[in-house]
Design a protein around this nucleic acid. Structure first.
Length: 392
DNA sequence: CGATCCCGCCACGCG
DNA sequence: CGCGTGGCGGGATCG
């Protein structure tokens, strides 16, 4: 009982002007910071909530209510998470948790797909470019699609009706977000680009730089995707070398999701990406986020190919078959029996969403994070073999 | 201001 | 027809 409240959405106001200035009255704190409801943060919480051992199935309603958001938002997150293999749709309203360990394989597949698809030849770099015409095209014919093979059939090579190659109508379904996410990622892993500017990505991904309207919409989606990907630390927001335009930097699979919660609990005791692939050939010197990453010695990404490096990492990860230490064990985590609630009580997710208020940045979550953070740190120091200067 | 992007209307399938 | 999904863009916030 008392599973999930039937009332779908306690939406107070709807339709018509939704002016909700919170009713005059002085008080204070107005405007509800948008940042607090960002997809990125939501995703971080989502991950924290389901990245525990034992989780296997995820119900959308469940997630929505626990995180205190509308269904719609869950769809956004779930779609991009699925693009990276962390989740898989099992049935209506039900997803299967695969975990971060599924990312490498997913990326690898994306890379292969991208290589054979129409994904080739994008060269972005610091140098400005004509950026006028040319180099647009891209997915104008045939759908990039996903899951080319690997998975049984369920992939009619030719869609009923127009057998003409390009089926403009293409899948009515996932026409965006999911596919967009994959294509976005392909941009990085199929080229050796590390940084891709926003409009560059939009231009490449859409191939319609003339239509401002469409562009605008796509860019919005790109932001959504970027936020989610960022919370997983697959990418990071930055700007182009000339620090002019906003851009995204591919971080790749550096390991676990760094708990970069807002910046309250851990502020500076974090960031330590990459743990394995120490023999990466193209290991860029990624400074910590201590300051900025103004890499003065930014070699021009000219090199091409060299995909084997990825395979190596993936392989290493998979063969290790390990499970990210701190996350699996956690033997004494939320015993389900709140002995007492003086300081650290059980992780009562059912209470995460107090109601309709910004449920993020929750005290409980904080506790959880700290707990994990601690475990993670010790675990990290263990696996950190190659860690020269890092403490003086 | 322009960059960022939250909210939720409403159009798609599918039972 | 209702319901689960999720495209899509207005317009509010942020920097």
């Amino acid at each position: 009982m008392s599973d999930l409240p039937p009332p779908e959405k306690p939406n107070m106001e709807l339709t018509s002007s939704s002016s909700m200035p919170g009713s005059s009255s002085s008080s204070l704190h107005h405007s509800y910071s948008r940042k607090q409801k960002s997809l990125g943060l939501l995703c971080t919480n989502f991950l924290a909530l389901y990245n525990r051992h034992g989780i296997e199935t995820i119900g959308l309603d469940d997630a929505a209510s626990k995180l205190g958001v509308e269904r719609r938002r869950i769809y956004d997150i779930v779609n991009v998470l699925e693009s990276v293999g962390v989740l898989t749709r099992r049935a209506k309203n039900q997803y299967t948790w695969k975990g971060f360990s599924a990312i490498p394989a997913a990326l690898k597949e994306l890379q292969e797909e991208g290589a054979k698809d129409t994904f080739h030849r994008f060269y972005i770099n610091e140098n400005v470019k004509g950026s006028d015409d040319e180099d647009d095209e891209e997915e104008s014919s045939s759908q990039p699609l996903s899951s080319s093979q690997t998975e049984t059939s369920s992939k009619p090579a030719s869609l009923p009706g127009q057998s003409s190659d390009s089926s403009k109508i293409d899948n009515r379904r996932e026409k965006s977000l999911g596919v967009l996410t994959q294509n976005f990622i392909k941009l990085f892993i199929c080229s050796q680009a590390t940084i891709i500017s926003l409009d560059e990505a939009a231009k490449l991904l859409l191939g319609d730089a003339h239509n401002t309207s469409i562009m605008r919409t796509k860019v919005r989606r790109l932001y959504d995707i970027a936020n989610v990907l960022s919370s997983m630390n697959l990418i990071e927001k930055t700007h182009t070398i000339d620090s002019r335009k906003p851009a995204f930097k591919w971080l790749g699979y550096n390991g676990e999701p760094t708990f970069t919660l807002s910046s309250d609990l851990m502020m500076q005791a974090e960031s330590k990406k990459r743990v394995f692939g120490t023999d990466l050939s193209n290991v860029s010197v990624k400074r910590s986020k201590t300051h900025d990453d103004n890499a003065s010695t930014e070699r021009r990404l000219k090199m091409k190919q060299a995909e084997s490096s990825y395979n190596r990492i993936f392989d290493a990860h998979e063969s290790r078959g390990y499970q990210f230490g701190p996350f699996a064990p956690a033997t004494s985590t939320y015993p389900t029996a709140p002995l007492e609630d003086s300081s650290k009580r059980a992780f009562d997710v059912e209470n995460l969403v107090s109601d309709y208020r910004p449920s993020y940045q929750n005290q409980v979550l904080k506790d959880l994070f700290e707990h994990y953070m601690d475990a993670w740190k010790s675990w990290y120091s263990e696996v950190t073999q190659t860690n020269p200067s890092q403490h003086h």
